[in-house]
């Protein structure tokens, strides 16, 4: 029994392996992009939008509302990154119920990739907010002695994100598989439902954590910068 979709190889060429992780990822990507394209082909500004437009607008509104609640900032600059994280993880985990679908989040490679994206996004947003010099200065705060701990903190945070997501999804898949072998009927379905719930919650938690890391870094930086500017004045 294979729990890691990385180990399912459909095709390989010169070291490159077309694994189930990649295929599932592309399927999720295709679903998201195609659905968005179909729904946003004929957008109307009237007060009575179509069914799919209404659904997407509600979805985007909820994401923006969450971002605004967490960051107290303009949601649009975080929307595309955090929103894509959420939609990608949520749809991947929801598709677990499709027979033959291997959730990409059950692969530590995928969750590592997403965690690395967050790991990069935090300084990118921070630098974009306050500039490179001010951003790098935070690693020397409150004293330069803290530099190693700050760096370790950044890495451990990323690792925690990756393992958290991977562990939840993979454990769900493992428990489902084990239960199917032990109790063939009914109970695995309940577990599948529970898996849907946990998958959705994990998507939410991952996106919110990423948002909090990005926002806190940039907010802390900006507040510090403003404080310095006030002192200089």
């Amino acid at each position: 029994m294979q729990f890691n979709p990385d180990q399912i190889v459909y095709w390989s060429l010169a070291g490159f392996k077309l694994t189930a992780t990649l295929v599932s990822t592309w399927m999720v990507m295709a679903l998201l992009v195609l659905g968005s394209w179909l729904a946003t082909r004929r957008l109307t500004v009237t007060v009575r939008p179509g069914r799919w437009q209404n659904f997407l607008e509600a979805l985007v509104s909820v994401i923006r509302g969450q971002i605004r609640d967490v960051t107290h900032q303009d949601p649009d600059k975080h929307l595309w990154f955090v929103g894509t994280l959420f939609l990608f993880i949520a749809l991947s985990n929801l598709l677990v119920i499709v027979p033959g679908f291997h959730p990409p989040m059950a692969s530590l490679s995928t969750t590592t990739a997403l965690a690395l994206c967050v790991f990069v996004a935090v300084p990118v947003y921070g630098i974009g907010e306050v500039g490179l010099k001010n951003y790098l200065r935070q690693y020397l705060e409150p004293t330069p002695l803290m530099l190693p701990f700050n760096v370790i903190g950044e890495f451990s945070r990323t690792l925690a994100l990756a393992v958290r997501l991977y562990g939840n999804i993979m454990s769900g898949a493992v428990i489902g598989a084990v239960l199917i072998t032990l109790v063939p009927f009914f109970f695995p379905i309940v577990m599948q439902l529970l898996g849907l719930l946990t998958g959705f919650i994990q998507a939410y938690i991952f996106a919110i954590l990423a948002l909090v890391y990005i926002a806190s870094a940039s907010v802390v930086q900006r507040e510090r910068l403003e404080k310095q500017q006030m002192e200089e004045m």
Binding site: W26, M29, T40, L56, G83, S109, T112
Partner: peptide, 29 residues
Amino acid sequence: VDWLTVAAQIVNFLILIALLKRFLYRPIV
């Protein structure tokens, strides 16, 4: 961790961001 897959997923994710930005967020917002 298959680092090649990690790289491929990072690229996939960045592409997805670009596509969703183009087809979802910008028109809807």
